[in-house]
């Protein structure tokens, strides 16, 4: 992989655009003022993902995944620590509950939030690149980082774009992570396309 700083900046920009759209949709949907920020975007090896202790070291992670295939293939994933996910859902729905936990309905709600964020980010990228991809049905997973990656644990994955996102609802600040996991060569293809688009616009 040969990711130049400009390409990373472009990816960061695309993710920010997608996240901004997602925030707008969530605002419309919930009537709650929500801001979504992406303070950190990094590219790392898929094999190094399990060592991201600061962000992903929890035995109880909740993830909403979206697999995509086409000119570049992989998986987009919004990951929260389980408690943070429940707190976020409660903040969005205004529920008053004794104990923040994730039952079937809340998982569904989280699924929709993940669906909105994943779709917005992927839509932002594909719109700019003029690409059409094929998407799977959104899927909810939970467990440790190994569990949520497990089914996709084949060596076909190569690089990962890790975008740290913050959901800010009034005084509440919930951190989630957007993972864009690419199959071998897919990130290179994406970067090439981005470079090409940037070149055509320069």
């Amino acid at each position: 992989m040969n990711a130049g700083e400009e390409s990373i900046d472009a990816i960061r920009e695309l993710i920010n655009i997608g996240v901004g759209r997602a925030a707008g949709l969530l605002n419309d949907m919930t009537g709650t003022h929500i801001r979504l920020q992406v303070p950190e975007v990094r590219v790392l090896r898929y094999s190094d993902l399990t060592r991201e202790q600061r962000l992903l070291d929890s035995a109880h992670l909740s993830a909403v995944t979206l697999r995509f295939s086409g000119s570049f293939s992989g998986m987009s994933m919004l990951v929260f620590p389980e408690k943070s996910a429940a707190i976020l859902i409660m903040a969005l729905t205004g529920e008053k509950i004794e104990e923040p936990d994730l039952d079937a309905l809340r998982i569904e709600t989280l699924n929709e939030v993940g669906n909105i964020v994943n779709n917005a980010v992927m839509g932002s990228i594909t719109n700019v690149l003029g690409e059409r991809l094929i998407y799977s049905i959104p899927e909810y997973r939970e467990g440790g980082i190994g569990d949520i990656l497990g089914r996709e644990g084949s060596p076909d994955y190569d690089w990962v774009i890790l975008a740290v996102s913050q959901f800010i609802i009034e005084d509440l600040r919930v951190v989630g992570n957007i993972l864009m996991i690419f199959e071998i060569g897919a990130l290179d293809t994406l970067l090439e396309k981005i470079t090409a688009v940037m070149g055509s616009h320069s």
């Binding site: 729905t93 809340r106 709600t109 929709e112 991809l133 959104p138």
Partner: peptide, 20 residues
């Protein structure tokens, strides 16, 4: 409209939860 519009543009499936 926005989310269904994305679908018509070939985007990923839009999921509408029971909660919202």
């Amino acid at each position: 409209a926005l989310r269904i519009g994305q679908v018509f543009e070939g985007g990923a499936a839009a999921f509408f939860s029971t909660q919202f």
